[in-house]
Amino acid sequence: MTPFRPGGRARPADAPVRIGGGRFPWLLVVPALLGLGFLVLPFAGLLARAPWSTLGTRLLMPEVRDALLLSLTTATAATAVSLLLGVPLAWLLARTRFPGLRVARALVTVPLVIPPVVGGVALLLVLGRNGVVGQYVHAWTGYSLPFTTPAVVVAQVFVAMPFLVISVEGALRAADRRYEEAAATLGATRAVVFRRVTLPMAAPGVLAGAVLCWSRALGEFGATIMFAGNFPGRTQTMPLAVYLAMQQSPDAAIVLSLVLLLVSLAVLVCLRDRWVSAP
């Protein structure tokens, strides 16, 4: 007669999970490669058709430099504004309950859904010289926002902030709230908990959101050209320059697109490296 244990046998906890019995996962890899090719091939097309011989002279044109500089500064400013407003908004959506929360959450995504040009018109109707709000500003201060560099930032914030909010909200939802409780027991007020625990622990989500936001702001075209207009050095960002170059000289448009592509790739790769290497 053998003694028996009712407890059951110990499970090997560290055994790696193998999917599909170790066979090559064709079902995933094939569509994945198709997807990658679909996204990358258009860029390959740009590279293939780039007018390499005149590339240098075109790159040195002051218009290109101005548009690039303006794009980089406005996209960065738009990201900063989005962080300032979007992170608290994400916190509100993720962590509080109030009547109309679901509606508010849906409203945040509106700029993602409507065509940016319509967004630009909407901004004009509100913030323009004759806009719902803008007319008072204009009447009292004589200031008119459209056609100024700040207007570019406003248009970019409008279309890009939702990316940040959604990303940060997701990170805040996924965060383990017990750490916040731990901080509270150590004497941290709500503000300190948010600043020193919630935000640092949600940092990857915030950073991912900021990168998305920056990229979207950099590529923003429709709302910008509608709300801020197009004037070289003041409101003409790279996408606008690309569009207008396309009207006259597709070669120039290709060059501008390549510049935009390379600069944004460089920034994103650097950012990602720093983000991944920093623990």
């Binding site: 731990a182 027991t185 150590l186």
Partner: peptide, 15 residues
Amino acid sequence: ERRPVGVVFQDYLLF
């Protein structure tokens, strides 16, 4: 945050 209480949590919850 205003209680003179220290807590050691399960799983410790070190930041």
